[in-house]
Write a protein that binds this DNA or RNA. Structure first.
Lengths: 190, 190
DNA sequence: TCCTATCTTGAATGTTCGTTCAAGATAACC
DNA sequence: GGTTATCTTGAACGAACATTCAAGATAGGA
């Protein structure tokens, strides 16, 4: 997992994977069929790890939106750490393999959709708890939130200063959670 | 340029480049020193092309923010076309080569900073023309806008429906151009 | 027409890649 | 302790890669 995150799929050699796993080529091929099979397994593990981490951020002990803010701040810290093992394997694989491997693209897209769906449910919860206007569209908000996180992660790769990245995250959180529903008239201007 | 955009730098072979340029390996090495040199040249050409395209979108014949909306809608169309040659070579190179080639990362980061700077100047113009509150921070708005575009481009690779992507772009435009300055109290909650 | 300087060609090079497999090690069972 | 079944090893393989270079083509000047 971390090997693929550091160098990307294409540039990670069997020698790298040998070092990373402690297994010899024969064992890797026995267990995972191919380098690609190992990537699929890594994606599976990544999904499991991230799901678990996600749930830890939402124990329901504080306001949903407050927990969401902490979650977003955690992502900012990951970006700032400049540690490749804290990057998102899903977006990395998506950027590298889109339009080259339909099956992997499908798996990655499904995983990201699952993440987005979890966030949609958070907003639904927030509505029930009265933290969010029931007028807002939870699915749209979740899509906008994940789009913002994608943007944040890419922006972070240009090595901005910490407070700049945090400011962008704060703005994103504000736009998602505190913005009144936009007037239709403004949106249709073209 | 388009060859690198389709397969990424690493997966683009000399044979691909031979087909794409119509030159034989010897000529390519004579003119560009190496495959990496050809990428540098492609980045230079890309910058030139995109700068020219950018300027075409802002002739100053309409409101600055209206021209910006058209520009954003154009980006959405590029994303929806699913044509790899309409992707952003800069973000693609950034995602692939970050933390692997410092010089290229630097060049890409500079180019993206230049683009962001151009957008900052648009907001400054908009303030002068009275289209935008002088209270707003042009640099912050520009950063948020480019972050949104990064996010939009990544989101597009999960192949969402056209109206979903357009809705996200509309929201981004709204948040950047019509949002009142957020209250400090809301931003510092943590 | 010939000479020279520049450009083009594509086969050859050495390296590195993903992958395989037969030999060896280990463990489990009776 | 002997036999079998499973796992581990790492050398070896062909393919594909970026790169080189000597031979050939081209064009401009005299």
């Amino acid at each position: 997992m971390t090997a693929f995150m550091h160098k990307g799929y294409g540039k990670t050699s069997m020698q790298d994977l040998k070092k990373a796993t402690g297994l010899h080529p024969g064992s890797i091929y026995c267990a995972f069929d191919s380098k690609r099979g190992l990537l699929l397994a890594a994606l599976g593990q990544y999904k499991k790890d991230r799901n678990s981490e996600f749930n830890d951020f939402f124990p329901g002990k504080a306001a949903v939106l407050t927990e969401l803010k902490h979650y977003l701040d955690h992502i900012v810290q990951e970006c700032l750490s400049c540690d490749a093992s804290k990057a998102c394997l899903l977006t990395k694989a998506l950027n590298e393999l889109a339009d080259q491997d339909d099956e992997i693209q499908g798996i990655v897209t499904e995983n990201l959709a699952g993440w987005q769906q979890s966030i949609t449910m958070l907003f639904e919860q927030a509505k029930v708890k009265g933290e969010l206007s029931t007028q807002r569209d939870s699915e749209h908000l979740a899509r906008y939130f994940v789009m913002g996180v994608y943007g944040l992660r890419t922006f972070a790769q240009t090595h901005p200063k910490a407070h700049v990245l945090q400011q962008l995250a704060d703005q994103l959180y504000h736009d998602v959670c505190y913005e009144p529903a936009p007037k239709i008239a403004e949106q249709v201007v073209n």
